[in-house]
Computed example of a mutant assay.
Amino acid sequence: MAKRICWLYRLETVSYDIVWRWQQNLLHLRRQNPDLPDALLLVEHPPVYTLGQGADESFLKFTPNAHMPPVVRIERGGEVTYHCPGQLVGYPILNLRRHRPDLHWYLRQLEEVVIRTVSAFEIDGERSDGLTGVWVEGRKVAAIGIKASRWITMHGFALNICPDLSGFQHIVPCGIADKAVGSLSEFQQGLDRLQVQPVLEKQFAQVFQCELVPQDLCTLPSSLS
């Protein structure tokens, strides 16, 4: 049986708004044509706070202003989180009808990708009962928030490799006040994206039983016209 194909877009540091639009367009095209391959975008963002569609703004500890990173409300589930350089963000655009049309299963698979990835660096990642994400020694190193339309996914996961964590001090991350945020570099010094991303790509391909096929960035849909 041939493996499913998943187009892989390896991005550098790109603003959140641009990648958000790419996700929306990739999802829209797959709603129009479900036979299009799945896609995975891997990227870093400049500092930005994002809130899920039903997120409580009281979890922001500041009033948005020009001196702080932008705050963007988006269509994923979950509360507020923070993106910044040193964090590897993954946006899978998957047709779950090809995999398993079950969002709880999908969330657990994303966690599994991260757990297997950090294990390759002798770091023990764990789940926390009743919560979504991955923890190491009680510190949350990966946040996950998704959206699905007709079983086609967008948004995804953010893995803290070596970011400046101070931006998390201005929010209640994911609405969880009693659990700290951490990064892989706290447990394995010197880790960076160049080391971690190839491992994560391999684990993603194994967990979702697909072949990642790198794509030219010019093939990303900038509009739906």
Rank of each mutant, 00 (worst) to 15 (best):
M1D: 12
M1R: 12
C6E: 01
Y9Q: 00
Y9A: 03
L11Q: 05
E12A: 09
V14C: 00
I18Y: 01
V19D: 00
W20E: 11
R21K: 13
L26K: 01
R31Q: 15
N33P: 01
P34I: 10
L36I: 07
L36Q: 08
D38N: 12
P46W: 02
P47T: 09
V48W: 03
Y49T: 08
T50E: 08
G54Q: 14
K61S: 13
T63D: 15
T63F: 07
N65P: 06
H67I: 10
H67T: 15
M68T: 15
P70L: 06
V72E: 13
I74T: 14
R76I: 05
G77E: 10
E79W: 12
V80Q: 03
C84E: 11
Q87R: 03
L88M: 08
L88H: 00
G90F: 05
R97M: 09
H99P: 06
R100H: 13
H104M: 08
W105C: 03
L107P: 01
L107I: 10
R108Q: 11
E111N: 07
E111L: 04
E112W: 05
V114G: 01
T117S: 10
T117I: 09
T117E: 07
S119K: 15
I123P: 03
G125Y: 01
E126N: 04
G130Q: 06
L131C: 04
T132E: 05
G133T: 12
V134Q: 04
V136I: 06
I144N: 02
R150C: 12
I152T: 06
T153W: 03
T153V: 06
L159D: 01
Q169K: 13
V172R: 02
G175F: 07
G175D: 09
A177R: 14
A180M: 09
A180R: 11
L184V: 05
S185N: 13
S185Y: 03
F187E: 02
Q195Y: 05
L200F: 12
E201W: 13
Q206G: 04
F208M: 07
C210V: 10
E211A: 11
V213R: 14
D216V: 09
L220K: 02
P221G: 06
